[in-house]
Design a protein around this nucleic acid. Structure first.
Length: 589
RNA sequence: AGUAUCGUGACUCAACUGGUAGAGUGUCCGACUGUCUCUCGGAAAGUUGCGGGUUCGAAUCCCGUCGGUACUGCCA
């Protein structure tokens, strides 16, 4: 027997019992006459006590233990003479009578402690040691709880979990596919799924009614802190539903998860159209933890012979509370440079400071009288101490830039408070997106998304401009400015689906070759259906107020998509290549 | 692919912006009978990622390269 209890289990009531514990040596404290060893496992830390007077040999053995040795001990639970209130097991210790080293350990490259993590590269290389650390360990436990509660809730709602294949067919739409050569079918390839999209729709045609799956998805695109090449979705599809049914189900799921895993009760989620989100916040995933809403200032600021404003399509501002006296000219210059960085690309930054002493200072003082500036400030609801920031230019770009500034100011002023959760449904996304480069439409969500019922007629007959204005029955859940997931009501009519593929630039033959199986299925009684998918990794991170999903994944990949620990991807044998009938092209430059 | 930033003992960082590479943690040795980040004494440990260049002199400046991270492009 390796253990009768774990290292987090023993309390004062166990005093007198003989127990056996196994675990890792966290640290030893050698006091000469006696030695204490902290024994750690997933559940906690228990102190082991060795005394020279009781058993000198054993005490000598304990002194020789190094960090991260795996040991097994047997002994009597004793009440401590000096207790440690900081640990759940702090009232007791084990008076060890038997010690066995199950496995020695080299000194780890970084110490297994909450704070003293090494750099990212060394943590990833020794991920199995990193996971021994409390923060990472707890993240993985949190993830597990979230998955278990998701299954509980959806099962309770009558959903069934169906697995879909990982070796599927490559499609040109959307992200790049990871591709797997087929040995048995020479010169042909599977693709790993970017999502189980078509399969879950086929399950609806198959009458499975309410499907879900916690499933790995794969996209061969560049990585970010919140993006991995393989990631996990809570994927779901329902038949005979409207948008409201889908939203209600997943609002219910989200509330359930917050309440069971975080003990937080969420109010009903507000809804906002895509257009409104873009207009008020310049983003399709606005962070509603703070306001700083956009204020449109064409009327107030145009026609005063300031060419920059007069030539702009739109002039938009935000009011930042209470920084007028805090931000020096130098600070504002730095902020201006910040918005001028190529990543944001604003031409300049106009500000109007309303100081606490009621004076006004502005970059556009030359072009506007003080009275005019005061009137603008009051139009914007700015008070003493506030600063109005203004960007101008082409509407879409300006909104995007001002969104970045808004988020930056929110960060600087500490308005993104930990423990504050502001969910939002963004609805009525555009159906199609015009891509200048390829001169064709892309599906904004995906090619199976249904237009809103009232737009269906226009979709069938409209011209190019009409197509740009079509709205889809598509929706995203946004929490604290992070896109948690999205979905749509799907097309279930063969003709409408064909039309949509046609708009997306597929010829009849291409459409048949790529999606024939789905179009065919639609001819055998496809029910109206819709669904949604949540990014599971991102949900874990957002619930914990973190922006990186890596520490919620046991073995994540780095920026280059590499697994540092196992060193993948890697070359393969010539034999394997031959078997797969693959030739490698020499890399040039 | 681009931009920014970082790379210094095992780990985390410092080194006055060009003038003898240091500290904490860890490791090793020794002392210590109630510690719990034990304490105290001592020791070992560095080709400053790599390759060039400028200079009397480079961790520091320049060029290149490799690697980490963040962002942009990209990601229905």
């Amino acid at each position: 027997m390796y253990r009768s209890h774990n290292c987090g289990a023993l309390r004062i009531d166990h005093v007198g019992q003989e127990v056996t514990l196994s675990g890792w040596v966290q640290i030893g404290r050698d006091l000469g006459g006696m030695t204490f060893v902290d024994l750690r496992d997933r559940y906690g830390i228990t102190q082991l006590a060795f005394n020279m007077d009781d058993n000198a040999d054993l005490c000598e053995q304990a002194r020789k233990l190094g960090r991260e040795f795996v040991i097994k001990v047997t002994g009597i639970v004793n009440e401590r003479q000096s207790k440690n209130a900081n640990r759940p097991t702090g009232d007791i210790e084990i008076k060890v009578s038997h010690l066995e080293v199950l496995n020695a350990s080299k000194t780890p490259p970084f110490t297994i402690e909450n704070e003293t993590d090494g750099g990212d590269d060394i943590r990833m290389k020794y991920r199995y040691l990193d996971i021994r650390r409390n923060p990472v360990k707890e993240n993985l436990i949190f993830r597990s709880n979230l998955a278990i509660e998701t299954r509980k809730y959806l099962a309770g709602e009558g959903f069934i979990e169906v697995e879909t294949p990982n070796l599927i067919k490559s499609t040109p739409e959307g992200a790049r596919d990871f591709v797997v050569p087929s040995r048995m079918n020479a010169n042909q390839f599977y693709a790993l799924p970017q999502s189980p999209q078509t399969f879950k729709q086929l399950l609806m045609v198959a009458g499975m009614d309410k499907y879900f799956q916690i499933v790995k998805c794969f996209r061969d695109e560049d990585l970010r802190a919140d993006r991995q090449p393989e990631f996990t979705q809570i994927d779901c599809e329902m038949a005979f539903v409207t948008r409201e049914d889908v939203l209600n189900t997943f609002e219910g799921l989200t509330k359930h998860l917050f309440s069971t895993v975080k003990n937080i009760t969420l109010d009903d989620f507000p809804k906002m159209s895509y257009d409104e989100a873009m207009r008020r916040f310049g983003s399709d995933k606005p962070d509603l933890r703070f306001d700083m809403e956009f204020i449109y200032l064409n009327e107030q600021l145009k026609g005063k012979d300031f060419v920059v404003f007069d030539g702009a399509e739109n002039i938009i501002g935000i009011v930042v509370k209470g920084i007028a006296d805090e931000y020096s000219n130098k600070d504002l210059k730095k902020l201006t440079e910040w918005v001028q960085r190529p990543q944001i690309g604003a031409k300049g930054l106009v500000y109007v400071k309303h100081h606490a002493d009621d004076t006004i200072k502005s970059t556009i003082g030359k072009f506007f009288s003080e009275e005019e500036l005061r009137s603008v400030l009051s139009h914007c609801g700015a008070e003493k101490g506030d600063t109005l920031f203004v960007l101008c230019g082409e509407t879409e770009k300006t909104r995007k830039q001002l969104n970045e500034l808004r988020l930056e100011m929110g960060r600087r002023l500490g308005l993104m408070k930990e423990g504050d959760f502001k969910p939002l449904w963004v609805i009525d996304f555009p159906l199609l997106e015009w891509d200048e480069e390829s001169e064709r439409f892309h599906a904004m969500h995906h090619p199976f998304t249904s237009p809103k019922a009232e737009d269906e007629e226009r979709m069938l007959n409209g011209d190019h401009e009409t197509m740009k204005s079509l709205r889809a029955d598509a929706y995203d859940l946004v929490i604290n400015g992070s896109e948690i997931g999205g979905g749509s009501i799907r097309i279930h009519d063969r003709e409408l689906q064909s039309k949509n593929l046609d708009l997306l630039g597929f010829s009849k033959e291409e459409a048949e070759a790529q999606f024939g199986f789905l179009l065919g299925a639609f001819e055998y009684g496809a029910p109206p259906h819709g669904g949604i998918a949540f990014g599971f990794d991102r949900l874990c991170a957002v619930l914990n107020g973190q922006s990186s999903i890596r520490d919620f994944i046991a073995f994540p990949k780095n920026n280059q998509g590499r697994d540092i620990m196992i060193d993948a991807p890697s070359p393969i044998d010539d034999e394997q290549l031959t078997e797969l009938r693959l030739d490698l092209v020499k890399q040039e430059e």
